[in-house]
């Protein structure tokens, strides 16, 4: 399944948020008596009567190149962050089949195995649709599978059967049990009828038909 890195997004959000709050606090300190309470902060804190043009003129030698570099970094960072929101799936590699002496016998494209395994899942009662993704190679295979389960079937039994079947099939093909099997179950649920019809196939009155 394709995903977006939540850890990366959250780290960037927290750091950016803290940076913004720090910048806002620095600017807002100009309207507070912080300098009166802390005179040692005079070199780094802004004065209330200061103007951005005066500050820029006083530090023009390094402020302008720094501003250009910072703008470039922020622009590139924004572009990279936007691209990172495109969901991606972990890479898969061809499955290398080896003999007992670790000699390569052949390699199988992951898609071939995936189709075979998903077809086998479709034969399980209760499964209306199945797809899966196989990765990790022959040494440490992992599986992510999605199955649709019909409403009439016992979901717990179907899920357990699917997981066991995947483990058995992968172990048979690759000689190694999968290190992880993730299963996403899609439950189909039909709406309950609002009315119940009695004796609709008889032309006689329903009550008389029922008594006969």
């Amino acid at each position: 399944m394709r995903t977006v890195s939540g850890r990366r997004n959250r780290t960037v959000l927290v750091l950016s948020g803290l940076l913004m709050m720090l910048a806002a606090a620095w600017v807002a300190s100009a309207a507070t008596p912080v300098l009166d309470l802390w005179p040692a902060g005079d070199p780094v804190l802004p004065h209330g009567d200061s103007r951005p043009a005066d500050i820029a003129a006083a530090h023009s030698s390094w402020l302008l190149p720094t501003a250009v570099a910072a703008s470039l970094l922020v622009t590139v960072g924004g572009i990279l962050l936007l691209i990172a929101q495109i969901p991606t799936a972990p890479p898969r590699e061809s499955v290398r089949v080896t003999d007992r002496d670790d000699h390569l016998l052949g390699s199988i494209a992951p898609g071939v195995l995936e189709r075979a395994l998903s077809d086998a899942l479709g034969a399980i009662p209760g499964v209306t649709d199945a797809s899966l993704r196989l990765g990790g190679g022959a040494a440490e295979p992992w599986i992510q599978s999605t199955v649709s389960v019909s409403e009439e079937s016992e979901t717990g039994w179907v899920a357990e059967t699917v997981r066991r079947r995947l483990i058995d099939d992968v172990t048979t093909v690759l000689g190694t049990a999968p290190v992880r099997v993730d299963l996403l179950v899609r439950l189909s649920s039909a709406r309950a009828p609002r009315t119940a019809r009695v004796g609709e196939h008889s032309t006689a009155a329903p009550a008389e038909t029922a008594l006969v």
Binding site: G6, S71, V74, T75, I79
Partner: peptide, 22 residues
């Protein structure tokens, strides 16, 4: 949740601010 929406908003703001600064 991966917080894709706030991250995308932050990315767009960064591109706008950085582009204006450049």
């Amino acid at each position: 949740p991966a917080r894709s929406v706030p991250a995308a908003v932050l990315a767009l703001l960064a591109i706008a601010a950085g582009g204006t600064g450049l």
